[in-house]
């Protein structure tokens, strides 16, 4: 009985151990500076007032929502085509993070919408697309966890991620079409084309903070998945590989 490379990708673990503290540090650094600029050192908008500060969370979250789905689909493709075990785990671990960013984008969008549009929800093309993206994440996570064998769940979910990735542009296109047909009340687009540099700085810093946070949490999650795989392998060894070696047995007591 051996540990499969799935359960024991040592090279990845070594790399992860090196990167993880840096990612954590970068997350902290960018968050502190980003939030400083976003909340204190940048002006309010002449139209939107202080509510514009929601944008510094909302826009990077929306970017990450798309970024995570793309990353997930690419990792899924690598896992399917080259059968790379860490890619499977990366896709699987990205989904909940991406779903959280998507939820954050929707939630902050709603918070911003109340003072701006006078209502918590508007069937605006962007909001609707992001909402559907959120459903795609939920479907992926449900499928990935619906099987007794996690490897099987990863494979099925990988196919779904690719099917979803093919569909995202189609969905986006159809929602835009639908939205222009049912023209809602005039909508102030978040972040117009001309952004003043005093707003751009916190925006970019927050975007970097979110990205570093993603890498940090992703590494933690993948390590967690690897450890879970090792535990399962140990259980299986009990079932299929005969009794454990003497040294591994508890010194006393049977339960």
């Amino acid at each position: 009985m051996i540990f499969h490379k799935y359960a024991n990708p040592n090279r990845f673990l070594k790399l992860a151990t090196t990167i993880q503290p840096w990612a954590a540090g970068a997350t902290g650094l960018f968050f502190v500076t980003g939030l400083y600029f976003a909340l204190l050192a940048s002006p309010g908008d002449y139209q939107q007032g202080e509510t514009v500060r929601i944008m510094y969370v909302h826009v990077p979250a929306a970017w990450m929502a798309m970024f995570c789905y793309t990353a997930m689909a690419m990792a899924a493709a690598v896992g399917l085509i080259w059968k790379h075990p860490v890619a499977d785990l990366a896709a699987r671990s990205t989904a909940p993070i991406g779903a959280c960013f998507t939820f954050l984008a929707l939630f902050t969008g709603s918070l911003w919408g109340k003072p701006m549009w006078g209502t918590w929800w508007v069937w605006d093309a962007r909001l609707t697309s992001v909402l559907i993206l959120f459903f795609l994440y939920l479907g992926y996570m449900a499928l990935a966890n619906a099987f007794d064998d996690p490897a099987r769940g990863s494979k099925a979910a990988a196919i779904l991620a690719l099917v979803g990735a093919v569909n995202v542009p189609v969905i986006k296109f159809s929602v835009d079409w639908w939205n222009t047909l049912h023209q809602p009340a005039s909508v102030v687009k978040i972040g117009g084309p001309a952004i003043h540099s005093s707003m751009l700085v916190p925006l970019i810093l927050m975007a970097l903070a979110f990205k570093a946070y993603y890498i940090w949490v992703l590494l933690i999650r993948i390590r967690g998945e690897i450890n879970a795989g090792k535990i399962r392998a140990l259980r299986l060894r009990q079932v299929h590989g005969g009794p454990p070696p003497i040294a591994a047995r508890p010194s006393q007591g049977v339960n």
């Binding site: 459903f135 479907g139 569909n167 189609v170 969905i171 159809s174």
Partner: peptide, 12 residues
């Protein structure tokens, strides 16, 4: 949960 989001374009 898997396919209803994918049905949206056809519906629209």
């Amino acid at each position: 949960l898997l396919i209803l989001p994918l049905y949206i374009p056809v519906l629209i």
